[in-house]
C-alpha cells in the first residue's frame, strides 16, 4: 500500500466478492418480485403491499435516527402524522393541488422536525425518548382538539389521487408503482446518506460522542440534521399514506403508531435500512393475515419480537445475513 493510494480499505468489506454478487442477486430477485407482484395477485393484496411500502419508508426513516444516530425516538409518528395531516389540510382546507399538497405535507413534517428537533437533540437516552413522546402526544391532542382544522377525532378525508405521466393513481396498480418508485427513491437517498461522511459521523456519535467532539465534530448540529432528515422522510411516508387512504385520523400521530415504527425497526433489524423494511412487511402481513384467523395476532407479534430481542440482536435481517454467510462458507 502506498501513500498515493486512495482506495479506502473498509472493515465491513467482504473478502469474498461472490458474497456481494449473491447479495445483489438476492436484492434483484426481490425487486423483480415487487415488479411482477401486482400482475399476479388481487387488487387487495396489491393494496396491502402498497401500504407495507409506505410503512417501510417510515421505519427506514426511524432507522436513520435510531439505528445510525443512536437516538431512540418514541414520537416518530409525529412526522408521519404531520405529513399526512399536512397533505390533507393543504388540499381540503387550503384548496391546493394534490401534488402541491403532498409536497407541502413533507415540508410541514420537516418544519415540525426542525422545531421539535431544536429541543430534543439536547437530550440523550431516556430523556430524548420521553421528550419525543411528549411532542408527539402534544400534536395528537392538537389533532383531536382543533376540530375546525383537522376534523377532530373523526379525522379528515377528501384528498383525491391525481394522475402522473398519464397514469391515474386511483387505479391500485398505478398507485402501487408510484409508491414502489417512492420507496426505492427513499431507500437510495437514505443509503447515500449513510454512506456519506455525515452518515459515518452519525455512527461515530452513536458510538462515542465525547470522542467525536474531541475530534472536532459539531455533534449537536449533526444530530439535529439527522433528526430533521428523518422527520422529512417520515413526512414522505405520511403524505403517501394520506394519498393511499385519502383519509387521516389522530391515530396517525398516536404513541401506538410510534411504538409500531419502533417495533418494525427492532423486529427487522436496526442499522441496515433494509431490515426495518422487512420488519414493516412482517408486521403488516401478520396484522392483515393472522388477524383474520385470531384476534390475538398482536400476541404472536409480541412473541416474535421477544425472540428477536433475545436471540437475534440484528433482527430478521441480521438472521438472514448470518444464514447467508453460513451458506457461503459451507
Amino acid at each position: 500500500m502506498s501513500v498515493s493510494q486512495t482506495t479506502p480499505p473498509s472493515a465491513a468489506q467482504s473478502s469474498d466478492d461472490l458474497l456481494g454478487k449473491l447479495f445483489s442477486r438476492w436484492q434483484y430477485a426481490i425487486l423483480i418480485a415487487l415488479l411482477v407482484w401486482p400482475f399476479a395477485v388481487s387488487h387487495y393484496a396489491t393494496g396491502l403491499i402498497t401500504e407495507t411500502l409506505i410503512f417501510a419508508i417510515a421505519a427506514m426513516s426511524l432507522d436513520l435516527l435510531m439505528g445510525y444516530g443512536g437516538m431512540v425516538s418514541f414520537g416518530h409518528a409525529a412526522f408521519f402524522g404531520l405529513g399526512a395531516y399536512g397533505a390533507l389540510v393543504l388540499n381540503v382546507q387550503a384548496g391546493l393541488h394534490p401534488w402541491i399538497s403532498l409536497i407541502g405535507g413533507v415540508a410541514v413534517a420537516a418544519f415540525g422536525a426542525v422545531v421539535i428537533g431544536f429541543f430534543c437533540v439536547k437530550m440523550r437516552g431516556v430523556a430524548f425518548l420521553m421528550v419525543t413522546l411528549a411532542f408527539a402526544q402534544l400534536l395528537y391532542s392538537g389533532a383531536v382538539k382543533w376540530r375546525w382544522l383537522t376534523g377532530g377525532s373523526d379525522g379528515m378525508s377528501g384528498l383525491p389521487r391525481p394522475s402522473i405521466l398519464g397514469l391515474d393513481l386511483d387505479h391500485p396498480v398505478a398507485m402501487y408503482f408510484f409508491t414502489l418508485a417512492s420507496f426505492l427513491a427513499c431507500l437510495y437517498c437514505l443509503r447515500r446518506l449513510t454512506d456519506s461522511q455525515f452518515g459515518h459521523a452519525l455512527v461515530g456519535i452513536r458510538e462515542n460522542e465525547t470522542r467525536m467532539r474531541a475530534m472536532g465534530f459539531e455533534t449537536r448540529g449533526l444530530r439535529f440534521v439527522a433528526f430533521v432528515v428523518a422527520g422529512a422522510f417520515g413526512g414522505v411516508a405520511g403524505s403517501l399514506y394520506a394519498l393511499l387512504q385519502g383519509f387521516v385520523s389522530p391515530d396517525a400521530l398516536s404513541w401506538g403508531m410510534s411504538g409500531t415504527f419502533l417495533l418494525m425497526v427492532v423486529l427487522g433489524g436496526a442499522r441496515s435500512l433494509v431490515g426495518p423494511a422487512i420488519g414493516a412487511t412482517v408486521f403488516l402481513l401478520m396484522k392483515h393475515l393472522v388477524s383474520s384467523h385470531t384476534t390475538h395476532w398482536l400476541s404472536i407479534v409480541g412473541i416474535i419480537f421477544v425472540l428477536c430481542v433475545m436471540f437475534f440482536r440484528g433482527g430478521i435481517f441480521g438472521l438472514l445475513e448470518r444464514l447467508r454467510r453460513g451458506e457461503a462458507t459451507r
Binding site: 479506502p8 456519506s196 461522511q197 455525515f198 459515518h200 459521523a201 475530534m215 472536532g216 440534521v225
Partner: peptide, 22 residues
C-alpha cells in the same frame, strides 16, 4: 476508517449528506 474519521472534521464535509466518503 478510524484515522479518516479523525481528519474528517477538518478536511471533510460532515454536513454534506450525499457525498460518498469513500
Amino acid at each position: 476508517e478510524n484515522v479518516r474519521l479523525g481528519i474528517g472534521s477538518r478536511y471533510g464535509q460532515p454536513f454534506n449528506l450525499f457525498a460518498r466518503i469513500d
